[in-house]
């Protein structure tokens, strides 16, 4: 956060002959796509970000010290990078990101993380289990590699949280809607798993809130899935 480097900051004249040039971390916002009352996708210039689907980036508004981590929503091939964000009531970063418009500048660090489908898993049956915006890494994975043999089990409270399900092969998607009628299953992800047979040979990727991950981990473990076949990305 070098005030001396920010040409747009007129109150901070350059006094230093040296600088930490962080300009390469600044990404222009291309669009903000509203997906619901509190959810939106921010699309930004990709620039030099090289990532694997499942990784996350740290995002903030340029000039703001505060940043948060978001899984990358867009596919590896895209010439932009997207994150799916749910505005947190009383939050620090997400309300500021919600105000971003095309042309504004965001600040990105990363990518980080290891929540990726490794080559030896690509021909196996994959189970993507998400809650809420935890669908992000799976959106990226599926759009990056359409050949994946996957099933997406997505837990949401209301149908409008079924973020862009149309971009998936709908025959592979189970939407578990817990607070209203609709979706392919009425209830929580964990209820769905308990009512259906678990494939102990598959690889399981869990992404979302910690309580869901905890409970699903128990269900899978008790169904004979070894922990070496369970991968999790905890949202907090």
């Amino acid at each position: 956060m070098k005030a001396t480097l920010d040409p747009s900051n007129n109150n901070s004249p350059s006094v230093s002959p040296v600088s930490n040039d962080r300009a390469h971390l600044h990404h222009r916002v291309l669009e903000r796509r509203v997906l619901g009352d509190h959810s939106f996708v921010v699309r930004m210039e990709r620039r030099a970000i090289a990532f694997k689907s499942g990784q996350y980036i740290s995002v903030g508004v340029k000039g703001d010290l505060n940043m948060r981590e978001y899984s990358i929503y867009s596919p590896e091939q895209a010439d932009f990078v997207e994150v799916l964000i749910r505005e947190v009531d009383g939050g620090i970063v997400s309300p500021r990101l919600k105000k971003l418009e095309a042309g504004d500048m965001a600040y990105i660090e990363g990518p980080f993380g290891y929540f990726t489908v490794e080559p030896h898993m690509r021909s196996a049956k994959l189970f993507f289990i998400a809650s809420g915006t935890g669908i992000s890494p799976f959106h990226s994975m599926v759009l990056s590699d359409p050949k994946l043999d996957y099933q997406l089990i997505h837990g949401v409270r209301t149908k409008d949280e079924c973020y862009e399900h149309k971009l998936f092969d709908t025959s592979r998607v189970v939407s578990c809607v817990s607070r209203e009628d609709g979706g392919s299953f009425n209830g929580r992800v964990t209820s769905y798993l308990r009512q259906n047979k678990i494939d102990a040979a598959g690889f399981y990727f869990l992404c979302g809130n910690c309580d869901m991950i905890y409970e699903v981990f128990d269900i899978l473990s008790s169904s004979g899935v070894p922990s070496s076949q369970i991968f999790a990305e905890v949202y907090f």
Binding site: G113, Y114, C210, I213, Y214, F217, D218, S227, S228, A232, V234, F236
Partner: peptide, 15 residues
């Protein structure tokens, strides 16, 4: 414990 490691976001298991 694997579940605690998950909650800690340690990115490895006991195994």
């Amino acid at each position: 414990d694997d579940k605690v490691l998950l909650r800690m976001n340690r990115k490895h298991s006991v195994g």
